[in-house]
């Protein structure tokens, strides 16, 4: 591993990571600031919620109650919002630092050095991983602070695990961005493919709550394996996390093979 390359990639990603991280922290902080009000009006909310269509509740992982902190956090934070941001980081950075760099033309400058293509790709992937961990840590930090300040009443370890799992959830999507970028050199495709995959697998996971025939297909959804909501409730799925890590590993290996073989594009 080349320290210079990792540092360079981290520096390139920095602005994006900070922006995504701030959006996440600020929004979650706002959501948490509202929590006491929600809790105190829980009865009214409960009524309101029961009137929501099932599809909507499935979509946001609303488990019938906002009255306890875990139900609130899993719906408000881990239902959609946190996955959206970590996926944004993973897909955005992975596509930018590979296909994006190739499109910008600077890949020639980089790869003309005595570094192998494999090293370039793995170092850049590592930088994206660091970004994800940073964002997940920021998420955990704001949740832990909220836990103490507004009394979410969630075991801190569950908040930390759920936050880290959200980063793990993002790995296969980031790796898919790397693979498509390595195959095509196109940043557009490197973004579109994982975004498309995310939309489809998210719908499969959430709609399976409503349509029984979809349930068997959930095994194809990373969102199912991440089980973020259940992790907040103290039921993290270790096997699911391994499935995600394994999938990301395979996609990354394929990305390396593709990148090693391809002609690099010029501007």
């Amino acid at each position: 591993m080349s320290r210079d390359l990792v540092v360079k990639s981290l520096r390139d990603n920095r602005a994006g990571t900070i922006a995504w991280g701030l959006v996440l922290v600020a929004s979650v902080a706002l959501q948490m600031a509202v929590y006491p009000t929600v809790r105190d009006a829980a009865a009214g909310f409960e009524q309101l919620l029961s009137s929501y269509p099932e599809a909507f509740k499935a979509m946001f992982d609303i488990q019938g109650t906002f009255a306890d902190g875990a139900g609130y956090v899993r719906a408000e934070v881990f239902g959609l919002f946190a996955p959206l941001v970590v996926l944004g980081v993973a897909i955005g950075q992975a596509s930018r630092c590979t296909a994006g760099e190739e499109r910008a033309g600077t890949m020639d400058l980089l790869v003309a050095n005595p570094v192998s293509r494999r090293e370039v790709l793995l170092d850049k992937a590592f930088a994206v991983l660091v970004d994800l961990v940073v964002v997940a840590a920021a998420l955990a930090a704001v949740l832990l602070a909220a836990n103490a300040l507004v009394g979410l009443d969630i075991p801190p370890v569950d908040l930390v695990v759920a936050s880290l799992l959200s980063a793990v959830l993002a790995l296969p999507f980031g790796a898919l961005a790397l693979l498509v970028g390595a195959l095509t050199g196109s940043r557009g495709l490197a973004v579109a493919a994982p975004v498309g995959a995310a939309v489809v697998t998210f719908l499969v996971q959430t709609l399976a709550e409503l349509a029984d025939w979809l349930r068997p297909w959930r095994v194809l959804s990373p969102f199912h394996h991440a089980g973020l909501g259940d992790a907040v409730s103290g039921n993290a799925d270790a096997l699911g996390a391994l499935v995600l890590l394994g999938t990301a590993g395979i996609l990354l290996a394929l990305a390396v093979l593709a990148f090693e073989r391809r002609d690099l594009a010029t501007r």
């Binding site: 910008a104 033309g105 400058l109």
Partner: peptide, 13 residues
């Protein structure tokens, strides 16, 4: 490449 210095034709910095 350890022993090569390269100036790309479509230089991007």
């Amino acid at each position: 490449r350890r022993r090569v210095g390269y100036l790309p034709g479509n230089l991007a910095l």
